[in-house]
C-alpha cells in the first residue's frame, strides 16, 4: 500500500522509513529548496501570507494530534495560542528574556494550561468536551483582559521582534525563514510523534476508548499527554504570531480562529500530517481570494456582499467538504498518488 510499483520492503528500517525511495528524497529536498528560496522571488505581501500559513500549520499540527489522532475535540485552540503568546510577550517585553528562552517557556505554559483544561476530557467526550474547551477559550481571554496591570488588558502590549547575536528578525524575509524552519521541524515532530508508543495509544483512544482502556492504554496519561502536545504546538504558534505582529492583543485570538483551525483539519483531512498542510494552505488561500475579490464585489454589487463573502465562502467550503469529502484533501491526494503509481494499470 502506498509504495511505487516494484519497490518492496525488506526489513524494519525500510518499513518504517517516511521517505522510502530516492525519488521521494529528491522531491523533499526540491520542495525545501523551493520553499526557502521563496523570499528571492516574492514580495513582502506574499511572504506575509506564507508566514501566516506557516504559523497556522504549526498550530493545526497540534490540533491534529489532539483531535485528529486522539479524538479529543478542542475548540479552544486560539485560547491556548493566546496563553503561549502572552507568556512569550511578557517574558520578552517585561522580563527581558531572549526570544529563544521565551519560546520554550511559552510552549510549556500553553501545555500546562492545556492539561488543566484537558481534565474534563477524563470524564466527558464529544460535544461535552467541545463545550469544555470553548469555555477554556473564553475563560483564558477573560483572565488576560482582567490582568490589566500585567498584560495591558484590551489595550494590548508591544512585543519585541526576536534577535540572535545582534541580528534582529526585522524583515519579512528573515521572519519567514524563522517561521518556516520551525514549521518544518514541527511537521517532522508531528509526523514522528504519532509513530511512537504514545501516538499509537492516541489512535487506540480515537478508535475506541473503552477497548483501548481494556487493552492497557492508560487513558488518564495519554489523554492529558495529547492535550499537552497539542497545546505546546499552539503555544509555539501563538508566540510566533505575536512576535511577528510585534504587538499582543486578545483580538488576535478570536474564538472563530479555533473554529477555522478545526475547519482546516476537516478540509485537509483528519489524522494526517499532509492533511494539516493541505488544509492550512487551502483555507488561507481562500481567505486571500476573499480579500482580492472583496473590493471588486463591493464596487460591483454592494459593500454588504463583500463583507459577507468571506463568512459564506468559508462556511460553504467546510459544509461541502463534510458532505462530499469527509476524509479531506489528504484522501484525494492519496488517490491521485496511487493512480499515477499504478498507471497505466487499473490496480
Amino acid at each position: 500500500m502506498g509504495l511505487p510499483s516494484g519497490t518492496f520492503n525488506q526489513g524494519y528500517a525500510q518499513d518504517m522509513a517516511i521517505f522510502r525511495t530516492r525519488t521521494q528524497w529528491v522531491m523533499l529536498f526540491a520542495f525545501l529548496i523551493l520553499l526557502f528560496a521563496c523570499p528571492l522571488f516574492f514580495g513582502d505581501r506574499i511572504l506575509t501570507v506564507l508566514t501566516i500559513i506557516g504559523i497556522s500549520i504549526i498550530s493545526v499540527h497540534g490540533l491534529n494530534i489532539l483531535t485528529g489522532y486522539c479524538n479529543q475535540i478542542s475548540m479552544g485552540h486560539a485560547g491556548f495560542m493566546a496563553v503561549g503568546a502572552y507568556t512569550s510577550a511578557l517574558l520578552t517585553a517585561k522580563l527581558d528574556f531572549s526570544f529563544w528562552a521565551a519560546l520554550p517557556c511559552a510552549a510549556l505554559a500553553a501545555g500546562i494550561v492545556g492539561i488543566i483544561f484537558g481534565l474534563p476530557s477524563l470524564r466527558v467526550k464529544g460535544f461535552y468536551l467541545i463545550m469544555a474547551t470553548v469555555a477554556a477559550h473564553f475563560i483564558i481571554i477573560w483572565v488576560i483582559l482582567q490582568l490589566y496591570g500585567v498584560t495591558g488588558g484590551a489595550d494590548g502590549m508591544a512585543v519585541p521582534r526576536p534577535e540572535i547575536g545582534g541580528f534582529v528578525f526585522k524583515s519579512k524575509a528573515s521572519y519567514f525563514y524563522l517561521v518556516m524552519a520551525i514549521a518544518c521541524l514541527g511537521t517532522f515532530f508531528a509526523k514522528n510523534i504519532v509513530r511512537t508508543r504514545a501516538g499509537r495509544a492516541f489512535i487506540a483512544i480515537r478508535d475506541n476508548e473503552l477497548a483501548a482502556e481494556v487493552m492497557g492504554v492508560n487513558l488518564w496519561t495519554y489523554k492529558l499527554q495529547a492535550f499537552f502536545i497539542g497545546c505546546v504546538y499552539a503555544g509555539v504558534a501563538g508566540s510566533l504570531l505575536v512576535h511577528y505582529v510585534a504587538f499582543a492583543t486578545t483580538d488576535q485570538f478570536p474564538f472563530m480562529n479555533s473554529v477555522w483551525y478545526l475547519g482546516m483539519l476537516i478540509v485537509g483531512g483528519m489524522g494526517s500530517t499532509m492533511g494539516v498542510i493541505f488544509g492550512a494552505v487551502s483555507l488561507k488561500l481562500l481567505d486571500e481570494l476573499v480579500t482580492v475579490v472583496g473590493p471588486i464585489l463591493a464596487a460591483a454589487v454592494s459593500p454588504q456582499a463583500a463583507s459577507s463573502l468571506g463568512l459564506i465562502m468559508r462556511g460553504l467550503v467546510i459544509l461541502l467538504f463534510l458532505i462530499f469529502e469527509p476524509r479531506g484533501l489528504a484522501h484525494r491526494w492519496q488517490m491521485v498518488k496511487s493512480y499515477y503509481r499504478l498507471w497505466p494499470f487499473s490496480h
Binding site: I73, M270, S308, R314, G315, I318
Partner: peptide, 30 residues
Amino acid sequence: MVGQPVLAVIMMTIALSVVLEGLATLVWGG
C-alpha cells in the same frame, strides 16, 4: 450527516452558523 461521527455533525452545524452569519450580514448589513 446521519450516522457520521460527532465531530462531523458538530462541524456541520458550525459551518451552518457561519453561513447564517454571512447571510445575516448580506441581508441586514450586520
